[in-house]
Design a protein around this nucleic acid. Structure first.
Lengths: 401, 401
DNA sequence: CGCTCTTAATTTAGGACTAAAGAAAGTTCA
DNA sequence: TGAACTTTCTTTAGTCCTAAATTAAGAGCG
């Protein structure tokens, strides 16, 4: 019932700005409908935002049969976000506008297992922020492989990084002086899909990543599912074989132990489909060249993924599946195994569910992280104190000449 | 942001009443905390509810070190709900108070495949309601096996009942003249668990039913997951065997095709563990008598259920699993297969997740249905127009002498 | 026994928001 | 070409709710 986390005015002002960013120019009537606020309130809020130099009136739209609408757009200075993606051996950065457009990006080496990894990360982040222009930064979004207690707090458990109870959020807040949102990197991708991608027109969809790891971001009723301890979406550890290979998690027969990039490479090496020192690029090249062993490895991976995703579709009933991650570069070889396995295990009325594979770039992970900041204006109570600070920074701006 | 479905006063009054029903007596300060409303507003609303005869002041609680609280309780006349559970061959009814306590119940034969099933159902419901006392009925909750487009609308797809696009909600509203909420019966059980059961202290948990069918109700952030078309939780159709038996849905190797009651009976007959005309009761008796074939069938069912639920726990990350349904009477035989399979396929930090098996009665399904009505005061926008009507009926009562 | 502290409940002033009415600016049609 | 209608935007009056201040009623302690 009550909104505690921000003043209501901050919530509304930041929602208007974020909506103009994510959705493009809109009229007052559009904003009232989209944000379910009365036209009277929108008029008041927009008047103040225009006075504060954050919103500008654009051309009039053609009439819809009545008074023509006056379109509104964002002023150029309306704030930016930085996204950081952390993996074991490097860190990627992007700086984006409120519309999600990438202004600049960078990537630097990094050792997540070093005993001074936090201060090294802080240094890298300071360098990236310091080399940007003097535009208002709303906050920092950080995506990590692993689970996070809550995005507004940011305590990380990550086997891949070797981190156990690392208070990353607090450390970065203290060192950088910006609001910081920390989230699992696949969940961050799902947030980005919801805001800027194919998920914009769906309240319920599934993001699946293939590549180094196998993971899922589950969007339900417009929000990413985190559940009890922030660990929803760990589909890589769904058991799919009773006596399958040993997984990095210690169990046997997890999906990931069979279809992660490392697993495919290991199978290919064992089968002689590639040289013992070759990697995934060689496997893809072999499959492209028609090698039956390589094709079979990808087909079987697709089959296992398809069957497993069919079960997930029955469990959570999404309207769309989006496939992302480094592994998508090989999707043409996964698909022959994936499609029949997936659709034949779906109930009849679900067999036409769309599965979309999007164009992947390494900076996509960092864009996902940045989206964590950009999404907070849409959730009045979301991300606790950090969310409130971000909304205040977005809503409280006054443009300087 | 804006609440459209009820006047705010109705939302708040009905929330206070429902909270006193579900949670028992509480002070004004307790209500303010539980409902996240200001103490000032609670004082105003409670004053009116006392004047209207719906709430009574009880004894003072012992002091917590400050001013002793004045406890509040429900007046006896504060409204009831009727729950109806429909299966292929009978209908079960309960009438419950706002606290969920069963006031009376009934069960009658019914033919879901009859061409006049709607009017037969209407007749049964009228008989049950007509034989009750003259207390204010807030609404009718109906649980069905199958999927429902939305609880406030109530269009049913059910293979088990042979219903396809049946506009049950509209038909019942027209004929009975009460607000009607229709939902999948396992989802209804999850609502009841959230309100009155083990789920009261959890925002994220999983309800699993074993018996005639295998289903799940998934509670996330305090609400039951429905997703895109209301079909979340159909875990019975998760594929668990590549070339398993043919399922009633037409696919092969679904979980349900291996561990539903009918599947267990078929396996037992094939194995000679029971007579060809015997049923589940004979299988349970044989297992209780130490028959190895019978024990093996239950153990294998438990193993498959355990492995599948481990996958679901990784996908949605619940804090608790509650097992319900007719099949729980045999849980002692499922458990030896279930427990090792379940826990060995969980990530290390999840291995201690509690799995609770609750006492089951056939009227539990109908209690779940009644809970659909009782839950609506807690969701300001929930169940559309039906929710608004229920809240208005609860909030708008004035007790007559 | 009286003072201080804590917690509960109430009152007050003011902010936030909406429903409804009205004004503005088009399109359509006779 | 002017009236009627539609859609957008603005203004007004009132409702709903909270933060803060105040009052009430206990426990604890010297």
């Amino acid at each position: 019932m009550a909104i505690h986390s921000s003043t209501r005015t901050d919530v509304n002002r930041s929602a208007i700005l974020a909506r103009l960013g994510a959705g493009g120019p809109a009229s007052r009537a559009d904003l009232a409908r989209a944000l379910t606020l009365s036209p009277a309130l929108i008029t008041q809020l927009v008047k103040d935002l225009i006075t504060d130099g954050l919103v500008v009136e654009l051309d009039q739209a053609p009439s819809n049969g009545g008074r023509p609408a006056r379109m509104l757009g964002l002023a150029a200075s309306a704030g930016r976000a930085v996204g950081v993606k952390v993996v074991a051996d490097h860190v990627a950065f992007v700086e984006v506008g409120i519309d999600g457009q990438v202004v600049r990006s960078a990537s630097t080496p990094f050792d997540a297992t070093s005993s001074t990894f936090v201060s090294e990360l802080v240094e890298r982040i300071r360098e990236f922020i310091g080399s940007g222009s003097d535009v208002n930064l709303l906050g920092l979004g950080v995506g990590v492989p692993g689970s996070v207690d809550s995005p507004g707090n940011g305590v990380v458990e990550s086997a891949q990084l070797g981190w156990n109870g690392v208070e990353l959020g607090d450390a970065l807040r203290r060192a950088i002086g910006l609001p910081v949102i920390v989230e699992n990197n696949v969940n961050a991708l799902a947030v980005a899909e919801r805001l800027f991608g194919l998920g914009r027109s769906h309240d319920d969809f599934l993001v699946v990543t293939i590549g180094t790891g196998i993971g899922a971001g589950i969007v339900v009723d417009g929000s990413v599912l985190r559940s009890a301890s922030g660990g929803a979406g760990e589909i890589g550890h769904i058991p799919v074989a009773d006596d399958g290979p040993r997984c990095t998690c210690g169990n046997d027969g997890c999906l990931e132990s069979l279809i992660s990039e490392a697993a495919l490479v290991a199978q290919a090496r064992s089968a002689g489909a590639i040289e013992p020192a070759a990697g995934i690029d060689a496997l893809l090249a072999a499959a492209d060249g028609g090698d039956e062993g390589a094709l079979g490895i990808f087909r079987e991976a697709g089959r296992l993924l398809g069957r497993t995703l069919a079960g997930i579709v029955h469990t959570i009933d999404p309207a769309l599946v989006v496939v992302l991650g480094e592994g998508t570069s090989a999707w043409r070889h996964w698909s022959p195994g994936f499609e029949p396995a997936f659709r034949s295990h779906l109930l009849r009325h679900r067999r036409s569910i769309p599965v979309e594979v999007e164009t992947w770039q390494d900076q996509s992970w960092a864009q996902g992280a940045a989206a964590l900041v950009l999404a907070t204006p849409f959730d009045a109570a979301g991300a606790g104190d950090q969310g409130r600070l971000i909304r205040a920074r977005l809503a409280g701006q006054v443009a300087t000449p």
